[in-house]
Computed example of a mutant assay.
Amino acid sequence: MAERNASPAMGSRGESLLFLTEDQLRRGIEAMFFAYRGFTADPDRILQEYGYGRAHHRAIHFINRTPGTTVNNLLSILGVTKQSLNRVLRALVEDGLVESRVGTRDKRERHLYLTDEGKALERELSEAQRARMRAAFRNAGPEAVAGFRAVLEQMMDPEMRRHYLDGVDNG
Rank of each mutant, 00 (worst) to 15 (best):
N73G: 14
L74C: 05
L75H: 15
L75V: 09
L75T: 14
S76D: 15
L78K: 02
G79Q: 01
G79W: 01
V80K: 07
Q83V: 11
Q83I: 15
S84K: 10
S84C: 03
L85S: 08
N86H: 06
R87C: 01
L89I: 04
R90F: 13
R90K: 14
L92N: 03
V93M: 07
D95A: 12
G96D: 09
G96Y: 03
G96W: 08
L97E: 05
S100K: 11
V102K: 02
R105N: 03
D106S: 08
D106M: 00
K107H: 11
R108N: 14
R108H: 07
E109D: 06
E109N: 09
E109S: 02
R110W: 00
R110P: 10
R110E: 11
H111G: 03
T115E: 13
D116K: 07
D116E: 15
E117Q: 12
A120C: 10
R123V: 14
R123G: 09
R123P: 04
L125N: 06
S126K: 06
A128L: 00
A128S: 06
R130F: 15
A131G: 07
R132S: 14
R132Y: 15
R134K: 14
R134M: 07
F137P: 01
F137E: 08
R138K: 11
R138Y: 00
R138H: 13
A140R: 02
A140K: 01
G141Y: 01
P142K: 07
P142C: 04
E143L: 13
A144E: 12
A144N: 12
